[in-house]
Design a protein around this nucleic acid. Structure first.
Length: 218
DNA sequence: TGCCAGGCCGGGT
DNA sequence: ACCCGGCATGGC
């Protein structure tokens, strides 16, 4: 049998073998990754793509441009992403933080130490743990682990974590079990999301995919 | 047609 | 320290 740590490496190996590389994050630049990370909060990516498409079409996908764009106008542009009023404010909060900290230079901001930058990001209104870790890993190439609803659900269904486990408990489980590697952490989270997309949503009696995964037992 | 999607905040116990 | 309502569009 596996010990609690080895099973996470085994899970990764199996997912990679089954699905192959996912080529994440879908985004052309670190700044686009940051914007996408905020826009995708509790939102399907296909809707985020429309919003990012709008930003690109208006040549708005740059820190200095968004800094000057009225929040009301920003909300209109990102409308397809949903929660557009709160997300417009959240984007503005990040942009203000970016200019306050590094004069709008994202590369310089991302050059900071992982632990310190994580705390600073978490202090920005609208950036929680998953958004912070997504930015750090996918825009900053830093060895942190991104935990989302799929991650928790998959670990819970396999009896690896209690359902009520906190974000940091799940994250620490990965960080304590795996040899730190940015490319692998990148791939691992993408594979977990892919598994979530592919096989199951919730423990739903009407879901035809759940029985095949043994997730509707009891 | 209702349910779900790559969360997070603020106010109330 | 939790718990919960609010935030909103688009696809299946």
């Amino acid at each position: 049998m596996y010990d609690k740590k080895a099973i996470l490496q085994d899970l990764y190996d199996r997912l990679y073998k089954a699905f192959g590389p996912r080529h994440w994050w879908p985004g052309d630049s670190p700044f686009e990754v940051v914007v996408g990370a905020i826009l995708t909060q509790n939102t399907a990516w296909r809707n985020v793509k429309k919003a990012i498409g709008n930003l690109k079409a208006g040549n708005l996908l740059a820190p200095d441009v968004l800094y000057d764009l009225p929040v009301q106008d920003l909300a209109t542009v990102i409308r397809p992403a949903g929660y557009y009023n709160v997300k417009a404010r959240r984007l503005k909060h990040f942009i203000e933080f970016l200019f306050r900290e590094s004069g709008g230079d994202l590369d310089r901001l991302l050059a900071r130490d992982l632990g310190a930058l994580r705390n600073e990001l978490l202090a920005v209104n609208g950036i929680g743990p998953e958004t912070a870790d997504s930015i750090l890993l996918y825009a900053g190439d830093k060895p942190t682990f991104v935990v989302d609803t799929y991650t928790k659900r998959i670990l819970f269904r396999h009896g690896l974590m209690p359902e009520e486990a906190s974000y940091d408990e799940v994250r620490d489980y990965f960080l304590d079990s795996l040899v730190p590697d940015v490319a692998m952490f990148n791939e691992y989270h993408a594979l977990l999301v892919h598994l979530g997309h592919t096989f199951c949503v919730k423990r739903n009696p009407k879901c035809e995919k759940c029985p095949a995964m043994g997730w509707n037992d009891e």
